[in-house]
């Protein structure tokens, strides 16, 4: 079988994606049926038996095939599609988990919100959600238009400067769900990936508790003291924030939990010591035009120490 079958859109992992996958199958069947009818009619018109051709050869055939048939098929589809539109945008219940995802050139800013919709945890390029519970995402943009799309969980929704769009996603099984920016946003748009990780509720609660504790505490990684110093002195802290340390930059991704992320560079590289070093040394060679300058002048030991320090941020 082909690699990648079933394709994510037809392999849903949440209720909204399920509904659309069902619709997709219905539509594919409709398309096959109509195409079949048209091809059959064409074949009959060109080389059918004379009496059949005669039947096809008048305005009546146009009224039946070109008007009545499409009107019936399309009416059914329209009613189905419109009803689905309504269920997909059912009003929020109010007890959903909330997070804010902001599209940036070319990464994703993530903030977990409390019930009063205040941000309590900051992260980037990765979102953790509990299984079986709807999650409401506030989608915003920090610069140009991006589009948030995790195909196995829901359809996509744009992130537009000056606006806040609301999308609801839900995963019914634990797993890692990939996504990618779907609206062309210039430069390395192709390299703007995203990861949603769904955990069972209990593990999710555990994760959030430990992260909240981590965010509140001061950094405790003495073995990487050299890295911590470098993080300040080399200018990393001007753009990146690490909770509990003086690093408080907001231009780039929050690195408080960078060590535990599955990917680097917004969903494009595995996260390990080697890729971390390569990214720090010269991310421009990896993801051209991204906003992080190359640090080619930094000695290897320093990059190594920085990578070690960042690996410990989890």
């Amino acid at each position: 079988m082909l690699d990648g079958w079933p394709p994510p859109i037809l392999d849903p992992a949440g209720p909204d994606a399920w509904a659309i996958a069902t619709l997709a199958w219905v539509l594919l069947a409709m398309a096959a049926l109509v195409l079949g009818v048209v091809l059959a009619a064409m074949w009959l018109a060109l080389s059918g038996r004379p009496e059949l051709r005669a039947r096809l050869g008048g305005t009546k055939a146009i009224w039946i095939g070109g008007v009545a048939f499409p009107v019936v098929v399309l009416s059914l589809l329209l009613v189905y599609g419109l009803s689905l539109t309504r269920t997909q945008s059912a009003p929020l219940r109010g007890d959903e988990m909330r997070a804010r995802v902001t599209g940036e050139m070319w990464w994703w800013r993530v903030a977990y919100l409390d019930q009063q919709r205040r941000p309590v945890l900051h992260d980037a390029n990765e979102l953790h959600i509990p299984v079986g519970r709807p999650v409401v995402l506030e989608l915003e943009s920090g610069d140009v238009i991006h589009s948030f799309w995790v195909p196995r969980l829901a359809g996509k929704l744009d992130m537009i400067p000056g606006r806040r769009n609301i999308i609801r996603i839900q995963a019914d099984q634990p797993g890692v769900f990939g996504g990618q920016c779907a609206e062309y946003c210039g430069g390395p748009h192709a390299l703007m990936g995203f990861v949603v990780v769904a955990h069972p509720q209990q593990r999710f609660d555990q994760l959030m508790r430990s992260r909240l504790a981590r965010a509140a505490a001061a950094s405790a990684t003495p073995q990487a003291a050299q890295g911590a110093r470098l993080f300040q002195s080399s200018g990393c802290a001007a753009c990146h924030r690490i909770a509990g340390t003086p690093a408080n930059g907001l231009a780039g991704p929050d690195l408080t939990f960078v060590g535990s992320r599955r990917t680097l560079g917004a969903g494009i590289l595995p996260n390990n010591r080697g890729t971390m070093m390569g990214w720090i040394a010269n991310s421009q060679a990896i993801k051209p035009e991204n906003r992080m300058p190359p640090y080619t002048l930094l000695p290897g030991e320093d990059i190594s120490a920085l990578a070690e320090y960042l690996e410990a941020q989890r």
């Binding site: 680097l264 590289l269 595995p270 390990n272 080697g274 890729t275 070093m277 390569g278 990214w279 040394a281 060679a285 990896i286």
Partner: peptide, 9 residues
């Protein structure tokens, strides 16, 4: 998978 090319051409 492991991203060797992030440092080496």
């Amino acid at each position: 998978r492991v991203g060797c090319a992030s440092c080496h051409t």
